[in-house]
Nucleic acid binder design. Structure first.
Lengths: 333, 333
DNA sequence: CCGGGGCGTGTAATCGATTACCTGACCGGC
DNA sequence: GCCGGTCAGGTAATCGATTACACGCCCCGG
């Protein structure tokens, strides 16, 4: 593989000149042409590794995702990758699989690789390496999940507007006994969603008593199913259930079906995260859609701001309600 | 951030010695201890970039995936990443989104980054850069999809056994008019699946006439739906449909429902690729499961073999049938 | 007692780029 | 005609590691 020296020789100039041409500095037209010709003839491409060593910038970002198999995060990762690439950055993705240890493992290798910046949607809250990363001065931006004690901007969706809309939607359809399946205790996002929903319901005079709030042991279908089981066993079972994550919603749906009940006639079901295949379920699921693409974009921009030393506040983007048929309404045109 | 020189000074030795200790060569116990102590005190971590420049090995692999949003490929990518990491390699993932141009774009940046090896599940067959990659001497392994004209081992699943089983399954359930929704023309994998299925059916005396084979324009739900529409409009509509990709299967299911028909009573449906949420559909979908994890593992091992200059043949791993309820049978305990 | 082999360690070259600094050519003004 | 300014472009230091080669020490055998 040709290097800058080969190009310099072929063009009859010094390596400095080649470098300058390629980086768009000074040289005059004639020299420039000769260099570019040599580059083309040799098929020269600068060695990114050498450049990184010299400039201390790798043009690589790291993304550690809490659970890549969760379609919401798959979409998010894809959005981040696209935007990063558009701006000339490569992305190394690490999947934590909801394990804080694996997350730390990933962060460590990413720091070792001298990535320019780090995006993390944290699994759990007890990550040692997150602290180390900021201590080491690596620009960090949190994605989707806030982490207490870590001083970094967070990019995520704000569910309030969508949940207000949802409360109205349910009220209009006469659902008076809502329930919520929340993420395991201590997940800040889940708590916020719960509170926003409670507030929105209250505005319609609909209460949300504690027995109709169930915390799932995990963010998987099985956890959602367990909670749904308890909810349906109540003396006064709910007539509408909101799951704060798409996988838990799936499990909840399983339980409804297993009992021979139907959505939406027996119970309405709404999920957080509008993943592509919700539209293909029977019935198609009404969902709170997070603006995945925009989140990815904003995350990359915020991170680049930090990398360039600019101020970068947290970003909250509004989620919106996608009405399908799982609450009993016919689909809106 | 401390570098090897700092460590050398602190330990009172030369940088060469530090390097040797860290790479497990010569030094004697006492020196070794001093160096390790210095490393610990300074929190030194070798600069991977500098090492890569010197050794010409980045310990990074590239993976270009045809469509990361397709859950089958998400799982595959995850499997690859895990195995790569287990063996000390980082993985840069690029999503081609079924676009050959984007694929080439990714391959180019990956080569620029001097990755040690490249894994590609190719979108389309007309990739210029795939050829360039082998020409440049970058170890290459194809994943899931063979590419004509590219001399590289391919790691993928062999559907024959599963399809033989499927033919028997359908025959036993009295389905006599099978149909197939295949990937767009020219996709080698799809063709092979089709032929295996045809052969297996023939063994049961069941024909597969051309009118019951529909090529989808793309690998998305909408394409599958279009084909299903044509199939159901036949004078003799099929009583069982195999979709050679999970997303096309989803679209096919949509069409069945839209007509007020039921799976499996009106038509049986089977999909290639057993993705997690198939079990949550109504009815749970019978599927040909590819050994995703093993494919990922094998792909990484094959690639490492090539990197180390060893011979590495193509790998074919058997897929197997996962019987659920979409063909009419009660679930097997 | 001396020479050679082996071993531990230091010196310095090297990987391929970027860039500070310097040189020399050219031009214009006084 | 000389001097200073401008600018293209060359020389060489530098980033942080690895490693070939050399050196010196010790030990052992003759």
């Amino acid at each position: 593989m040709a290097n800058i020296k080969d190009v310099a020789e072929r063009a009859g100039v010094s390596v400095a000149t080649v470098s300058r041409v390629l980086n768009g500095r000074s040289p005059v037209a004639e020299t420039r042409e000769r260099v570019l010709a040599a580059v083309a003839e040799l098929g020269y491409r600068p060695d990114v590794v050498a450049r990184a060593l010299r400039t201390a910038r790798t043009r690589t970002l790291g993304l550690v995702i809490s659970d890549l198999r969760n379609p919401f995060f798959t979409e998010l990762a894809d959005a981040v990758e696209q935007e990063a690439r558009r701006l000339g950055y490569s992305l190394i993705i690490g999947n934590a699989g909801e394990s804080p240890e694996q997350q730390d493992d990933h962060i460590r290798t990413l720091l070792d690789r001298r990535i320019d910046g780090l995006l993390v949607s944290s699994a759990g809250t007890g990550s040692v390496m997150l602290g180390e990363a900021v201590a080491a001065g690596t620009p960090l931006v949190l994605l989707d999940r806030e982490v207490p004690g870590v001083a970094a901007p967070c990019v995520r969706a704000q569910g309030r507007a969508a949940l207000t809309e949802l409360a109205a939607h349910l009220a209009a359809l006469g659902r008076r006994r809502p329930a919520v399946i929340v993420a395991p205790a201590g997940t800040p996002v889940g708590d916020e969603r719960l509170e926003s929903f409670r507030t929105a319901l209250a505005a319609h005079g609909v209460p949300l008593p504690p027995e109709r709030i169930g915390a799932s042991p995990d963010l998987r279908p099985e956890g959602g199913r367990q909670v749904m089981r308890r909810l349906l066993d109540l003396a006064e079972p709910p007539d509408a259930v909101l799951a704060t994550d798409n996988l838990m919603a799936l499990g909840a749906l399983d339980e409804v079906r297993a009992r021979g009940l139907r959505v939406p006639s027996d119970v309405a079901l709404v999920a957080f995260d509008d993943v592509a295949w919700f539209a293909h379920l029977d019935p198609p699921l009404t969902a709170v859609a997070q603006p995945t693409r925009e989140l990815g974009r904003a995350a990359v921009h915020t991170l680049l701001a930090r990398i360039e030393g600019r101020e970068a506040p947290s970003v909250l983007l509004p989620a919106h309600l996608v009405r399908r048929r799982s609450c009993g309404e016919p689909p809106t045109g």
